[in-house]
């Protein structure tokens, strides 16, 4: 465990250096948040009754999504890992006395948390003081806030669980560019990155909510905005726990299999 804590610390300190990139990311996320909110307001003006969530909930959903974007992103990968697989440096990794799956898992999580740590505070602060129609509304109770934080952590782990599968797939194809892109675009949509999952048609919505995609950003964002409550909330958390565990088991299995077969070309 100490080894993983150390890996986490090193990676976190490494990623937190990129302050200029964080600043640029901030401005992009602000612009994105505003445009999404304006678009949803335009739809709301047409027919408020057809809105599956309240406008206030939608606005909170969008700001929290933008603030914690890097934590859930399906397009963010650790390129060092792909490089290691492609260049053969993987052989160095394999002689180290740590489980490679756990190591990469820790590294990826640390990266994501560092990126979010730099970006979330300014977005949240500004979103809290915006004019009422665009303001972020905090959860009404401490319990809700606590559940949100718990769910957010699990969502990040589920996302990393999927990302780990993409890393493992790179063992068999060397160049995972295409897989990465399909995962990034399909995943982005299915996790509710473009429109929130409650806006999906009923049938698809049920399927997605049971899939690992529904167990990512969807759950914490809906808990924060107060959309998920009571039994539905407990059920959503249970689905998260299930996928978290299932993805880790599957990932470990495929990783072991890939590592047994790995051939490093000399040179």
């Amino acid at each position: 465990m100490r080894a993983y804590a150390a890996i986490f610390r090193v990676q976190f300190n490494n990623s937190i250096q990129y302050r200029a990139a964080a600043l640029a990311g901030l401005s992009t996320q602000f612009a994105w948040g505003f445009m999404y909110i304006l678009a949803f307001q335009a739809f709301y003006a047409v027919n408020p009754a057809a809105f599956p969530m309240t406008l206030e909930q939608t606005v909170s959903y969008i700001w929290i999504q933008q603030a914690f974007l890097a934590l859930f992103a399906m397009w963010a990968y650790d390129y060092d890992i792909f490089d290691a697989i492609q260049s053969g440096h993987i052989s160095y990794e394999m002689v180290r006395p740590v489980n490679l799956y756990n190591r990469w898992y820790t590294q990826t999580i640390a990266n994501r948390i560092a990126r979010v740590a730099l970006r979330c505070a300014p977005i949240l602060l500004v979103a809290l003081v915006l004019p009422a129609s665009m303001r972020l509304v905090l959860p009404s109770s401490a319990v809700q806030m606590g559940l949100f934080l718990l769910s957010m952590l699990m969502a990040a782990c589920v996302a990393v669980g999927i990302v780990m599968l993409v890393y493992v797939s790179a063992f068999s194809s060397i160049n995972a560019g295409g897989t990465r892109m399909i995962m990034a675009s399909g995943g982005e949509f299915l996790t509710g990155g473009i429109i929130p999952i409650p806006f999906f048609p009923a049938g698809l919505r049920t399927v997605v909510e049971l899939s690992p995609f529904g167990a990512m950003q969807n759950t914490p964002l809906l808990i924060f905005s107060g959309y998920l409550q009571g039994d539905a909330l407990v059920r959503a958390l249970a689905i998260q726990v299930f996928w978290l565990a299932a993805l880790a088991v599957v990932g470990q299995f495929f990783m072991r299999r890939a590592l047994r077969r790995v051939t490093v070309q000399g040179g």
């Binding site: 739809f43 027919n47 057809a50 809105f51 599956p52 560019g177 295409g178 897989t179 990465r180 892109m181 399909i182 990034a184 675009s185 399909g186 982005e188 949509f189 473009i194 429109i195 806006f199 999906f200 048609p201």
Partner: peptide, 23 residues
């Protein structure tokens, strides 16, 4: 695969519109 990926990125945006206009 990359071309397909590009297609899917754009398709997500399209699908988002489609779902919104269902409502």
């Amino acid at each position: 695969l990359s071309t397909l990926g590009q297609f899917l990125v754009a398709f997500g945006t399209f699908l988002g519109l489609q779902f919104l206009f269902d409502r």
